[in-house]
């Protein structure tokens, strides 16, 4: 780790004002390991840990608001989440291990947009709104590629708003890292059927339109029988080839509907 200065922010305004050339620190589950390995070298950290207005889960009309610093364990164990967006609590409970869930936050996960993270699939399938200190961004416009998002420099995520709906999610964990090798999130909501796939896309989370078309006619696992995603553009590594991942997208989509 290189030397850095640390500022414990007290409010959103304080955090944004104090950022300068620095970086926000949320749960630190991604940022700190990369700093230790000297892959990231911010000279200044603005710690969001003490910003009360960034914590908590609430209901606002027909949306569930999960504030940015809400930790995965809080989402996983929230009765409110389980009632408002059933399935989202299960997804949060599948992230990493207890130590990671006790520190990692939804804001950090969404800001980082790891192509194998779980939350991006939920955001895209539910058509969540990413709320920042300056604007509201639809999930459709937010995820722009591998580790890249629509966030401007210095922009702070304050919350994620999920329309209330049931989330069907099935995850095939990478055997080594246990991040998603394939994660498929399926929602039948106000916007029709949306199928979002994480873990396998070469450009990060994406929507699987062929499956959406089938499910519009028949919202069941059976409607997806024999389907697999297009292997072109899939990630490929020692854990799974593009072809295997494309196949697993079909398997996980069917499991999402039959098992959750």
């Amino acid at each position: 780790m290189y030397e850095f200065t640390h500022h414990a922010a007290t409010s959103v305004a304080d955090a944004v004002g104090a950022l300068g050339e620095g970086k926000f620190l949320a749960g630190g589950q991604t940022l700190l390991p990369t700093m230790k390995q000297r892959l990231a070298m911010p000279g200044h950290l603005v710690d969001l840990g003490k910003v009360a207005e960034l914590r908590g889960v609430e209901e606002k009309g027909d949306v569930l608001v999960v504030k940015a610093m809400t930790r995965h364990v809080e989402v996983a164990t929230s009765a409110l989440v389980a009632r408002a967006v059933p399935g989202l609590e299960k997804l949060a409970g599948m992230i990493g291990d207890p130590a990671v869930r006790n520190r990692g936050t939804i804001g950090g996960s969404i800001a980082n947009n790891d192509p194998t993270a779980d939350y991006p699939a939920a955001c895209l399938a539910l058509k969540a709104t990413i709320v920042t200190n300056t604007r509201r961004i639809s999930a459709d416009d937010y995820f722009t590629g591998l580790f890249s998002t629509a966030l401007e420099d210095g922009e702070l995520i304050t919350a994620v708003e999920f329309p209330k709906a049931k989330l069907h999610y099935a995850k095939f964990p990478n055997p080594a890292s246990r991040y998603a090798m394939v994660g498929v999130a399926i929602v039948k909501g106000a916007d029709g059927v949306r199928v979002a796939v994480t873990g396998s896309g070469g450009d990060g989370v994406f929507r699987w339109s062929e499956a959406e078309a089938k499910l519009k006619a028949d919202f069941s696992a059976g409607a997806l029988e024999g389907m697999k995603a297009d292997a072109a553009g899939m990630m490929s590594d020692i854990h799974g080839s593009a072809e295997y991942r494309a196949h697993l997208v079909g398997v996980m989509a069917r499991r999402a509907l039959s098992e959750s």
């Binding site: 055997p175 080594a176 890292s177 991040y179 590594d237 020692i238 854990h239």
Partner: peptide, 11 residues
């Protein structure tokens, strides 16, 4: 070495 961490070396 492709498997130089637990992200890729599966224990």
């Amino acid at each position: 070495l492709v498997t130089a961490s637990y992200m890729d070396y599966c224990m």
